[in-house]
Computed example of a mutant assay.
Amino acid sequence: MANDVLKRRMGELDMTQEELAEKLNDAVHSLTGSHGKATARTVWNLQNRVEWPYTKIRMALEIVFGCPVEELGFTPRTVKSAETKDEEPVDRRNFGALAAGIALGAAAPGTLHRVGTSDVMRLHRKFAEIIAKDHRQGGRKPIEHQALGLAGEALGLLNAGSSSQRVKSLIYSTAASFTSSAMWAAIDGRRFEAAQRHFDRASSLAGMSGDQAIQFRIWSHAGTLYRHLARPADALAANDVARRLRVTRGDPLFAALGHARHAAIHGVPGDTRAIRRCMDLAEDAYTRSSAFEQDRPVWLTAFFDRAELHSLATAAYLAAHEYEDAEANAHQSLALLRAPLARSRAITTARLAHGHSWGRAI
Rank of each mutant, 00 (worst) to 15 (best):
A2S: 13
G11N: 07
K23V: 01
A27T: 05
L31M: 14
H35P: 15
R41T: 14
L46W: 08
Q47S: 05
N48S: 01
R49W: 06
P53W: 07
Y54A: 05
V64A: 03
F65R: 01
E70F: 01
G73W: 03
P76M: 08
T84D: 04
T84Q: 13
R92C: 00
R92K: 01
A103E: 05
A106G: 13
A108N: 12
A108E: 15
L112Y: 04
G116T: 15
R122C: 00
I131Q: 04
D134K: 00
H135N: 12
E144Y: 08
A147T: 02
G156T: 01
G156R: 05
Q165N: 14
I171K: 02
A176T: 12
A182W: 03
A185R: 08
A185W: 04
I187T: 09
D188G: 06
R191P: 04
D200G: 02
D200M: 06
R201L: 10
A202V: 05
A202C: 03
S209F: 01
T224A: 12
A238E: 08
N239Q: 09
D240L: 04
L253W: 12
A260L: 06
H262K: 06
P269D: 01
D271A: 08
D280M: 12
A282D: 08
R288A: 11
E293N: 15
T301D: 14
F304P: 09
L312Q: 10
D325Y: 11
A328H: 14
S333K: 07
L334W: 05
L337Y: 03
A342W: 02
A346L: 14
A350H: 12
A350K: 12
R351W: 11
S357I: 06
R360Y: 00
I362R: 12
